[in-house]
Nucleic acid binder design. Sequence first.
DNA 1: TATGAATGAGAATTCATTCAT
DNA 2: AATGAATGAATTCTCATTCAT
Lengths: 196, 196, 196, 196
Amino acid sequence: MKKNKPKYKQIIDAAVEVIAENGYHSSQVSKIAKKAGVADGTIYLYFKNKEDILVSLFQEKMGQFIEKIEEEIQTKSNAKEKLLSMVEMHYSQLAKNHQLAIVTQLELRQSNKELRLKINDVLKRYLEVIDHIVQEGMDEKHFDPSLDMRLVRQMVFGTLDETVTNWVMNEQKYDLMQQANGVHQLLINGLSQSRE
Amino acid sequence: MKKNKPKYKQIIDAAVEVIAENGYHSSQVSKIAKKAGVADGTIYLYFKNKEDILVSLFQEKMGQFIEKIEEEIQTKSNAKEKLLSMVEMHYSQLAKNHQLAIVTQLELRQSNKELRLKINDVLKRYLEVIDHIVQEGMDEKHFDPSLDMRLVRQMVFGTLDETVTNWVMNEQKYDLMQQANGVHQLLINGLSQSRE
Amino acid sequence: MKKNKPKYKQIIDAAVEVIAENGYHSSQVSKIAKKAGVADGTIYLYFKNKEDILVSLFQEKMGQFIEKIEEEIQTKSNAKEKLLSMVEMHYSQLAKNHQLAIVTQLELRQSNKELRLKINDVLKRYLEVIDHIVQEGMDEKHFDPSLDMRLVRQMVFGTLDETVTNWVMNEQKYDLMQQANGVHQLLINGLSQSRE
Amino acid sequence: MKKNKPKYKQIIDAAVEVIAENGYHSSQVSKIAKKAGVADGTIYLYFKNKEDILVSLFQEKMGQFIEKIEEEIQTKSNAKEKLLSMVEMHYSQLAKNHQLAIVTQLELRQSNKELRLKINDVLKRYLEVIDHIVQEGMDEKHFDPSLDMRLVRQMVFGTLDETVTNWVMNEQKYDLMQQANGVHQLLINGLSQSRE
DNA sequence: TATGAATGAGAATTCATTCAT
DNA sequence: AATGAATGAATTCTCATTCAT
């Protein structure tokens, strides 16, 4: 299995670094190879083509990203706590890894439609996590049972994505983690005057 | 002023058509020129370079987009109605113009960081519209006065943007307008069990 | 019509020179462009791709080659004279243009199967010239009427082609034209002891 | 002597198969190694480089080819019969081995000038066979003693080669062997009205 | 002998932009 | 103002060959 060989991960990590530093369009395969410490041709022993590096990068990193969120959520006992945990994990993981944040929020979006479809496939798993939390909340009667799942999913993901993108575009000048509680409250209560 | 000459608008409209039909990366200047019925070189009498066509396109179209939202909102008397009106206008204008929706939601995001910074400048005006509505709602005590304006702005915009992008990526198979009320409710009440 | 523009012919002539001098595999498009005195990109205004240069080269040069043979043959009154004329013209034209001889006999044969099929199309016209002469000879009862046209055509063309290729491979050390009569006699009488 | 080791022949036979199936340009060393059941590196224990495989292939196969022709010819008592025998053997051997025919007539001609010079060296032995037959025919006074040996050699070889190439290019749709007599007659009598 | 992972040189083509007319 | 022919920089991927094991 190529994915377990050390060079596979080396190349993906080099790709993250190179893309974060140089931007998507200035990230030539030869630059990635150099940073990974392998020959250009070696890249093609592990990846079908350049796009395959990017898709694999996203799968690998986003897979771990979602896995960690799933693990953390399991330790929580109700939907509200799970949602908070998800927001916190989403933010903390990207806050911890600035380069990855740049790559996923900005650079990889410059890819073509085909690549973005593959990226969306990876995201489906994340959307399912959201769905489960919301469903649980509705079952608990803490969330409105009449909610349209698709809209909720898009609000939650859209909000998280937009807040992270803003943070990255502002060059991470403020503390992303500090927003977690506020965003959680917003998602739970919306704009309305809170009842408490 | 070049912006009032007929060819200026011709070229921008051609760009929207060409990009919607062919995708960002297959939209060569020569294709836009052909569709606009002018020579390649003529483009450069009206635009500094290719990127300038795209920025101008966004300014022109998004400017009108925001203007119409502003006009419509003025006729509403409170923040909740204004927010609903904004959601409806946002959706209706893009639903009415599929090509523009494809260009703004998918194709223009493939542009490089520099171009996206300029695009963000255009969006600032829209974000200010959101801010005004939210501020008004807080003043009316209908919206929670302790809300963090930046987070709200990002939740609102992120939700609208994500819902439209999903609709476009699903090839506009469902009716975007029908979502307006649900999204409005979600933004107002969040996930919590509604009080009514 | 692009074929009548001066750059079209410039590029083809440059291609003949470059291929004859450097060999097929060392004849990069950029080398041809440089020799033709145009930019690399200009090549692609006149030719679809590199292979199209080679096919066009063959069509252009071989077309003229065959045309001249046809013209010369018309002035002869019987098949034997026409055959001699054909042999002489075949040899004289290639003897006069060493570079073209190298390209057609050696370098262009290194091309892939697809290109060779296109080259064969061009040659069909030449084979028809042979067929006409042989048919005329059979009608005159000077040539054996029971001959298999396909075999004759292949013998004649194979002989001419092989003799020219040998001459080119021997770096044109001997006089190709001096062979014309001998080859003509061979084709007419074969190996048999002549009757005269 | 490496040539007698089993892997030497394995590799050559694999090369014939691979080139016949995939064409010259798609016949990578790794493909040949795989078909031969050896590692890529093993090839280089038996052959200096890729070109050496091709030259050796030609030497090996053409050597056997010529040997069989020589054996068969020995059983004939005069030049005419020997010539017929040569034509028949030439055709029958290639008709029996389609893959080899494809490789020698089409694929190996795509090689570069250098390789073809080496190939020509191998063919010299065949040309000598032709020369001997012709000389014998002239001594017997059945062939015209004033013939130019070089021209005859090129006519005979050019005719055989052209007829086989045509047969291969036409995907061996007709029976090559059936042409043997006709070609033999053509070579003996040329185009002239036969005396019988 | 045999292996096969790693190497790295090498080239066609596109397309934004210019500028002589 | 308008044209459009000409420019030329820039990059992925293949595959023959090597060499540590």
